[in-house]
Design a protein around this nucleic acid. Sequence first.
RNA 1: CGGGGAGUAGCGCAGUUUGGCUAGCGCGCUUGCUUCGGGAGCAAGAGGCCGCGGGUUCAAAUCCCGCCUUCCCGACCA
Length: 394
Amino acid sequence: MRWSNTYIPTLREDPSDAEVASHKLMLRAGFIRRLGSGAYSYLPLGLRILRNIENIIRDEMNAAGASEVLLPAMQPAELWKKTDRFKLLEEILITYKDRSGKLNVFGPTHEEVITDLVARDIRSYRDLPKLLYQIQTKFRDEPRPRFGVLRSKEFVMKDAYSFDKDEKGLEVIYKKMHEAYRRIFDRCGLEYVSVEADSGFMGGSESHEFMAPASCGEDKVICGKDKKEKAAIELGHIFKLGTKYSKPLGARYLDEDGKEKDAIMGCYGIGVNRIFAAVIEQNNDKDGMIWPIAIAPYQVLIIVIDPADKDVVKESERIYKELIDSGIETILDDRDERPGIKFKDADLIGFPLKVTVGKKSLKEGKVELKPRKTQKTSLHPSNKIISVIKDHLK
RNA sequence: CGGGGAGUAGCGCAGUUUGGCUAGCGCGCUUGCUUCGGGAGCAAGAGGCCGCGGGUUCAAAUCCCGCCUUCCCGACCA
């Protein structure tokens, strides 16, 4: 991608309505913009990061044997009355009446919908277990949205649901999900802990939360051997639900012994936008963000120091093309701006690798490489830079 | 929902206490010249229902009443 051709509105100063680091930086870097309280637009770079996180989640969920589905956000209120959660969640449900006067809710979570779906098609113990997931926008009328995308009214969640014939089967999947979650957070470069938690309005017997230590966290965890209390962001929560939803919604199957039984359920959620913000909270310095290679908006940034110099442009373009042809996600800063502005934006956004093509070093056949993490500059022969970059990205 | 801030140019802010404004400052933006390796310099410009509605007054960004929006703390929270 050429910088001049996309949309990256960076800000020099901290916006007045942002308080925590991740929120400020996401706004400054042109990743997001606020529409109303708790509602954010994702701009090109922000969306790329969000998609990268989603794809890691997809990858690990698929590997764990889950199948992706997509459920409606619009749901009949009737369904929620069947499980008694319409009353329970009344305060946070965003509802509307359709043209016929029927009350609907914008899904804050999907236990009702998925259970209703599965209940219609599952008949026998031979059909179980089933593990389904989706990545979808949820709606909750939060009493107090805050910290940018960390607590918003509209947010992206990966929610998975398992249906088993007994507790033993649930235990197997629950453990599998626990492991998948570890791999997901590891790949996103997060520091986190898994803790036993309260099930809240989800119900069920047992649950674990995955918490990322961060100063802006809304929750408290005790992690490490020092037993100190730390603020943390809740990234994910997995639950053993039992028959809380399968019973009222009729998700039953016929067992080997010919008896009709309720399916045993589990549900597994991840806040995708929260991973986004948590990574920033844990990876930033005075100059900006420091993106892990796996979810960076682009792995490599090429800075064209002097866009008026033919040799510099030619060499920048060559490197750009070769990197793209090698499958490396690259952005070329071809803007007609002063070097200082380009360097500041580069550090603010935090692309993992920065290649600088300038007149002076190019005369000696060299270009510069600077990893955002170490900020150590090294010079390399221009014709070797592709392989040097590949080594760094390994 | 309780408490506390804030709303003035695209962004960040001053001015409000004590009414006199023809509303400023920095950044950004436009044009020209000079610069050109870490947010350039000079010059000339463009850009405001001072959140909205009512009221007081000769006169309101400024005082009074009502409302809206938003941020923070708390309560709540997948």
